[in-house]
Design a protein around this nucleic acid. Structure first.
Lengths: 205, 205
DNA sequence: TGTTCTAGATTGAACGCTCATTCTATGTTA
DNA sequence: TAACATAGAATGAGCGTTCAATCTAGAACA
């Protein structure tokens, strides 16, 4: 046994450079898409030479994968937070408001759509996206099961799974709406989606 | 005034070639995305030389625009059909079933997502997408206004607009779900979305 | 403290390849 | 023959990636 190798926290410079690259890449991907953005553009945005990027990432696809993984982490923390609330149902309805606003931000929406479009054809990205979705659904399933039990419903797992699916559909659909209709009335849509989620939780199984 | 120029129907060969190219392009775009697919690939899939494609389309972006316009036409006819039903509400709920299935086909979903992702950064595509969305919303707005009036509700236009928005969100969200969770239980989701649409139409304004 | 050494950070040119697009030459048809 | 359909090579630009050469900061040593 020798001394442990220097970890990431012991190499703040390397980690900072990685983040610098990821930040620049996210911006370029937003503006030109995964395939439209070039390493040359990313390197210029990041303020370093093109060759240097390959000291931190094996290739362009590794950058894409890192961006995808980073984006999906937010989703996981959001669904996890939900479970820790005392009145879960009230917390969920309340959370809808900020969730809707998040999804309606067209800047984020563009990158998120790019990610799923890429997942439709790139198996490596698809795996990352689907793994994150499974974890996300698991959290929502537990949350909804609790809510339904507390209200006296006796659901089978398939019924709960389909509620989760519709809940996810409502949120993710907003990503498309923010692009297709930039003039959405946010406040009205928030209220109406809150009502829809409320109705969903009371549907017969 | 001279003789009218030969129309598309008078040049069936040219129109057939155009469709041949569009069909090949759609397949390539589905597999590799707008920027990942090359003219060489499209020409090989279409069974003609690369150079020949430029006799029918000015450039690659014109092919993309044509694909986008073609895809959005389906949407318009669907919302238009809805209005012609006798019992509009029942027709809408019934249509949800096939609409959901359509949106859950991952083959179509990939191209539709690619289109919206492209719209997020390409102004020309954005314009086509938004114009189609406006027309689509106009149709749905009329339909929902009729349904609500028949049920005795007195809504302002903003209330109806937000209902249309949530309805669109529900459908378009399915595109993302079909990619993120390929194992969806279609039948259950159809029933639950039908119920959600039903509830939506009864929400207070 | 001043000097040398060294390993990692960084650059920028070069590589082979593919891209979208153009051009010229040859078929084909009427 | 006139007009159009088609092929395929050519063009120059840009791609992702590699690599040899330089710079730089700090350790080791005097």
């Amino acid at each position: 046994m020798s001394v442990p190798p220097p970890s990431a926290t012991e190499q703040p410079r390397a980690e900072a450079r990685r983040q610098q690259i990821l930040c620049a890449a996210a911006q370029c991907f937003r503006e030109h898409g995964f395939h439209g953005a070039s390493i040359a553009q990313i390197s210029k945005t990041a303020g370093m030479s093109a060759g240097h990027i390959y000291h931190y990432f094996e290739n362009k696809e590794a950058i894409i994968a890192a961006i995808v993984a980073q984006d999906l982490e937010d989703l996981l923390t959001l669904t996890a937070e939900l479970r820790s609330a005392s009145n879960v149902r009230a917390a969920m309805i309340e959370r809808v408001a900020e969730g809707v606003l998040d999804q309606l931000d067209p800047l984020r929406a563009g990158l998120k759509l790019e990610i799923v479009a890429e997942a439709a054809r790139n198996p490596r990205v698809a795996e990352i996206v689907r793994d994150a979705d499974i974890a996300c659904r698991r959290g929502l399933t537990d949350t909804i099961r609790d809510i339904r039990r507390a209200a006296g419903h006796a659901d089978d797992e398939a019924a709960i799974a389909s509620m989760v699916e519709v809940l996810a559909t409502l949120f993710e659909g907003l990503l498309l709406r923010s692009i297709r209709n930039p003039g959405i009335d946010h406040a009205q849509v928030i209220r109406r989606i809150q009502a829809a989620v409320n109705d969903l939780l009371d549907q017969g199984s």
